[in-house]
Simulated scan of single mutants.
Amino acid sequence: MIQSITSIQSLSQERIDNMHQLQQQSYLVEQQLLGIDPFPPLLETKQGLAASDEACLIRCDVENILGFLQYVVTDNQLVINKLVVRPDYFRQGIGRDLLQSLIKQKRDSSILVETAQKNTPAINLYEKLGFRQTTQFYVEEGIEIVRLERT
């Protein structure tokens, strides 16, 4: 089941705690993949997540959050800020389902996302769903970033 949330602030503290825990688990795997320490996304606190006014999609089973996608909408453009999946559900279609749901809901918007160049699983997923690489650049942590867009 995918649940659409207009703002993370509208979620219960328990749900936010679960999302934060999932985010930490997922980003630890990404940190190892990228070889970056400290990895900036791991520094986000529960309070920071709870204060976000971003919209999100959450994929759940009966008891657990399996993944979530956070995004913001500006004019005719949508920017994905996070796509997080429980590590024990990697490569089982959770991320794909969240992205496809977002694409379906926001048909008239172009969608932008940025990820590390070394994050080939994410890049492959985005490209399979019609995203194209538009730009590459480095951020201050020395990470090479790829910007992808779907129009």
Rank of each mutant, 00 (worst) to 15 (best):
S4T: 07
T6W: 11
T6V: 13
S7Q: 13
I8A: 08
I8H: 02
S10R: 06
L11E: 01
L11D: 05
L11P: 06
I16V: 14
N18C: 14
N18K: 13
N18I: 00
Q24H: 11
Q24E: 11
Q24D: 10
Q24S: 12
Q25E: 14
S26T: 11
L28P: 06
V29F: 15
E30P: 03
Q32K: 15
L34M: 15
G35E: 09
G35I: 04
I36H: 07
I36A: 09
P38H: 12
F39N: 01
P40G: 08
L42C: 14
L42Q: 11
T45E: 05
T45W: 02
K46M: 04
K46Q: 10
G48D: 08
G48Y: 03
A50Y: 09
A50N: 03
A50I: 04
S52T: 04
S52L: 10
D53L: 11
E54P: 02
C56K: 03
C56Q: 09
C56D: 06
C56V: 03
L57T: 01
I58C: 15
C60M: 12
C60E: 14
C60Y: 10
D61T: 15
V62A: 15
I65A: 13
I65E: 14
L66S: 13
G67H: 12
F68D: 11
F68Q: 07
Y71G: 04
Q77A: 14
I80C: 09
N81Q: 08
N81C: 08
N81M: 05
K82D: 05
K82R: 09
K82H: 05
L83S: 02
L83D: 03
L83R: 02
V85M: 04
R86I: 14
F90T: 06
Q92S: 11
Q92A: 09
Q92V: 13
Q92D: 10
G93Q: 06
G93F: 12
R96Y: 13
R96S: 12
D97H: 07
D97G: 08
L98S: 00
L99V: 02
S101L: 06
L102F: 06
L102I: 02
I103D: 00
Q105R: 06
Q105G: 06
Q105L: 05
K106F: 15
R107W: 07
S109P: 00
S110P: 02
L112V: 02
L112D: 09
E114T: 05
T115A: 07
T115I: 01
T115D: 08
A116F: 01
A116M: 02
Q117R: 08
Q117Y: 09
K118F: 09
K118L: 14
N119D: 04
T120Y: 07
P121E: 10
I123Y: 06
I123L: 14
N124S: 06
L125E: 00
L125Q: 00
L125G: 06
L129N: 00
F131K: 00
F131Q: 03
R132L: 07
Q133A: 14
T135G: 05
F137N: 01
F137A: 09
F137S: 07
F137K: 07
Y138E: 01
V139H: 05
V139E: 11
E140H: 01
I143R: 08
I143V: 06
E144A: 14
I145P: 01
L148A: 04
E149T: 00
R150M: 01
T151L: 12
